[in-house]
Amino acid sequence: MSQLIWNGLFVGSFYALVALGYSMVYGIMKLLNFAHGDIYMLGAFTGFAILGAVGGISPGMALPALLGVLVVTMGVTGLSGVLLERVAYRPLRNAPRLSLLITAVGASFTLEYGMRAAAGADPQVYPLRLGGTSAEILGARITLQQIALIIVAVALMVGLNLLVTRTREGRAMRAIALDPRTSALMGINVNAVISRTFFLGSALAGAAGVMAGAYYGKIDFLMGFLIGLKAFTSAVIGGIGNIPGTMLGGLLLGLLESFGTFWLGGEWRDVFAFGVLILFLSVRPTGLLGERVTERV
């Protein structure tokens, strides 16, 4: 039981980390960035490339090395996100929503199969794995690496939340989310703020990618597809556009999946997750903590 809860929270914190980018971008420009899951994949591969370039790392240095790689990767994926927005989304900001969605699908394809062309179709083994000393806590088997990863994830999320709620930058984001036109009139540089939003969201997804690589040990070019869907589900459960809600949604989805898998069997895990998504969208599309999601008249 407590093992299920722990597993759920652990996986959920990954979902939450990726979901935040989804949620922020959606909140600010009402765009479903389908390519977001692929940014996560890009992060995993960036970390992979950096570690490969650096060479052998002694097990004792694994954690500090991982943190270093994490920071660099976040920079890389963050900039990729900015580039993506600049190239593919910005020119279409006033186009019909359908065009934007299709472009996002195209971007997702480009990233996935671009990576396949660059790194090959076979899964890559991550050069760095955290040592797995496990401990028994409250009846759950927990490894130190899990604890380390969760601490990093929580730190990133808390940092993001502070940024959005406490700083001028965050205030500008929230203002644009409410009303981009008026925000622009009030002197907010909407383009710059959107770029920064993409940077933040993509950086977090990149961090999650590196962490997933180090934890699961294997990465492949399609790894972002499913987690993108899961992240979206998390965002919807918690309330898309709402940052604490999204974090909550991620953890909740992790828990639901953990228990659902236990009851139904691992092969139904994804079906269960999508079932939850559809249920939430039908019954409570605003999510648990969401603001009203509204279509203009």
Binding site: L100, S108, Y113
Partner: peptide
């Protein structure tokens, strides 16, 4: 598929 993805963006 990479080309298809790029094509999709360019068409849009």
């Amino acid at each position: 598929f990479f080309a298809f993805g790029v094509l999709l963006i360019i068409v849009m």
